[in-house]
Design a protein around this nucleic acid. Sequence first.
DNA 1: GGCCGGATACCG
DNA 2: GGTATCCGGCCA
Length: 194
Amino acid sequence: MGKKLNQAFYEQPTLMLAKQLLGTLLVHESDEGTTIGRIVETEAYLGIEDQAAHSFGGRRTKRTEIMFGAPGVVYTYVMHTHCLFNIVSNRENVPEAVLIRAIEPVQGEDLMVKRRGAERQGRVLTNGPGKLTKAMGITMAHYGQTLNEGSLYVIEGDLPSDISVGKRIGIDNSGDARDYPYRFWETGNSYVSK
DNA sequence: GGCCGGATACCG
DNA sequence: GGTATCCGGCCA
């Protein structure tokens, strides 16, 4: 098993972190069992100057407060019926984060299927930000938790052989930021969203 | 393709 | 209290 990513790993420029998270393994040890997913798609949200980020313009609220804090902390939030999982990046007072958009099941796939429902198997099991949180059992209870100190953490994995870059998804109402190439995925991986 | 569910939380 | 949202499932 690879070793846990440390604080220094998370404390780097967000675009770099978004790329370097590809291929790493997201682990959640829960009461129901352990699930592990290989991260295959991410998006960077660059704080102050990124209109698509919750912290755009330095907006500091109860929800976004966590983005201003230490890197390597979990930022979850609920959208409609789904919980989305982000990792705070860069250094303190730089409100940036990486959204995890897709994983490939590595361990505990049976448990993922149980959480998602028997009819959601194969690539649709985890090929989207709301899907993977449900499969992994990630909830708002993880908000503010430091990765590596709890039951949810990331360890080293096999790096992707090739990385693709493109526009982010679901941010059409964000002006010029809509077209920024801040989405990264492992080329050819079938668990990538869309 | 379109619609709408249902949870925050922000803003007036 | 109205409205927008870093989505997903279901209908077509």
